[in-house]
Amino acid sequence: MAQSNSGSSNTLLVPQATAGLNQLKYEVAQELGIAIPQDGYQGNMTTKDNGSIGGYITRHLVQIAEQQLAGK
């Protein structure tokens, strides 16, 4: 998710989506009861917590895409 991480191989197809994805990350973390440090650095978080956030975001984005394809 973090575009500022120079070691990241993930590239967004729509760079303007960065703010929305970051907001979604914080909302999902809050729903799951996981605290993301204020500075945004997730390197000290557990792999389980980061994986939970990423998995939930993926499920959510797939749900949105399915709804759009179904015309809802």
Score class of each variant (00 low, 15 high):
A2N: 10
Q3R: 14
Q3P: 00
Q3W: 11
S4N: 11
S4E: 11
N5M: 08
S6Y: 02
G7S: 15
S9E: 15
N10H: 14
L12Y: 12
L12Q: 11
L13S: 10
V14H: 04
P15C: 00
P15W: 00
Q16I: 00
A17N: 11
A19W: 01
G20P: 02
G20L: 06
N22S: 13
Q23V: 05
Q23I: 04
Q23M: 07
L24Q: 10
L24T: 05
L24E: 06
K25C: 10
Y26G: 00
Y26L: 12
V28R: 03
L32D: 01
G33A: 06
I34Q: 10
A35C: 07
I36W: 02
I36K: 08
P37T: 13
Q38C: 09
Q38D: 15
D39L: 01
D39K: 05
D39E: 01
Y41C: 11
N44V: 10
M45S: 10
T46E: 08
T46C: 08
T46N: 10
K48P: 00
D49R: 05
N50F: 04
G51P: 03
S52F: 03
I53V: 04
G54W: 09
G54E: 14
G55P: 05
Y56A: 13
I57G: 01
I57K: 07
T58P: 00
R59G: 07
H60W: 07
H60G: 00
H60F: 11
L61A: 03
V62A: 12
V62W: 06
V62S: 07
A65L: 12
A65W: 07
A65Q: 09
Q68V: 06
Q68S: 11
L69A: 06
L69N: 04
G71K: 04
G71E: 02
K72T: 04
